[in-house]
Amino acid sequence: MTGQRSDARRNHQRILAVAEAEVAARGADASLEQIARTAGVGSATVRRHFPTRQALLAAVFTERVEHLCGRARELAGADDSRAALLEWVRALVDYAVSARGLADALTYEPPTDVPADAPDRHSCGGDLEAAAALLLRPAARDGAVGPDVTAHDLVTLAVGIALATEHHRDPAAQAARLLRLAIGGLSPAPAPGDR
């Protein structure tokens, strides 16, 4: 029994290491069959450890997502709620642009009928939304963002920017530009007397 557990752990680690390399090279569409072949296991073994592509992608991105969630917790007590929220959103956009496949992994519509404590509810997207909410609540309370802005909106914005800039010559610079536009709004308020 103990041998099976250590074999399962080794398989899990090997599959995850191969998946990280494949996703880095090919993005979210990395072949599960190729991952299995490279890891030296069968497709059924991959599916036993990661029942869905989403589960595998979530595992690939978990460490960095945990870092972003930790950063949100650190920023949550900041005096300037707007600056804290924007710093975190910029970090999320930067990572979504630099981590090939993350934006694809986060393109989802959260389920409305899944209880908050259901196992499938805990995903990269769900974790990022919970982190965003920590910063969004004080920013909304302070009037730094509109009352109708949701944590899902923030994650969707980051995903959209990452997807839109994916094939740009300089994705990071273009993503930063688009985020500035989103933050500033497309139509800045007119100066007094310009009406």
Rank of each mutant, 00 (worst) to 15 (best):
V65R: 06
A91V: 01
A55E: 11
R48V: 10
H168S: 12
T2N: 08
D7I: 12
D194T: 10
H49K: 03
D127A: 13
T112Q: 14
D142R: 06
Q54A: 15
E20T: 15
A8K: 02
A172K: 05
V65K: 03
A17N: 10
G126C: 11
D79I: 12
G185F: 13
T107F: 04
G70S: 11
E166L: 09
H12A: 10
A21E: 15
H167E: 14
A83C: 04
L136P: 02
L75A: 11
A116G: 03
G70C: 01
V149I: 13
T2P: 10
G77P: 05
T45M: 07
R71P: 00
D29L: 12
G42S: 12
A58Y: 09
P110K: 08
H167S: 15
L68N: 00
F50H: 12
D153M: 14
P188N: 10
A28D: 10
L134N: 07
G146T: 08
R64C: 07
L136N: 09
R9F: 08
A139L: 11
A24G: 14
L57I: 00
L102R: 02
R71V: 00
T52K: 09
A189N: 11
Q174W: 08
A162I: 12
A172F: 02
A133C: 01
A130N: 03
R82S: 02
R47A: 06
A99W: 03
A8H: 05
V93H: 06
R10K: 06
A130S: 03
A151S: 15
A59H: 10
M1C: 07
G185I: 05
I183G: 00
F50E: 08
L85R: 03
G143K: 03
G101I: 00
F61A: 07
G42F: 08
L32M: 14
A25F: 10
D94S: 02
G27W: 04
L92R: 09
R26A: 15
S187V: 11
V89Q: 12
E87W: 05
R137L: 15
A133E: 13
V65T: 08
L181K: 06
E66R: 09
R169L: 14
Q174R: 10
P190A: 04
A84P: 05
L136Y: 05
F61Y: 15
Q13S: 14
P111A: 12
A182F: 14
A96Q: 02
V46H: 06
H49G: 00
R64P: 02
D194F: 11
P192N: 08
I35G: 09
T52F: 11
G27F: 08
E20K: 15
V89H: 09
R10E: 13
L178G: 00
P190I: 01
C69F: 03
S187T: 05
R47H: 12
P138W: 06
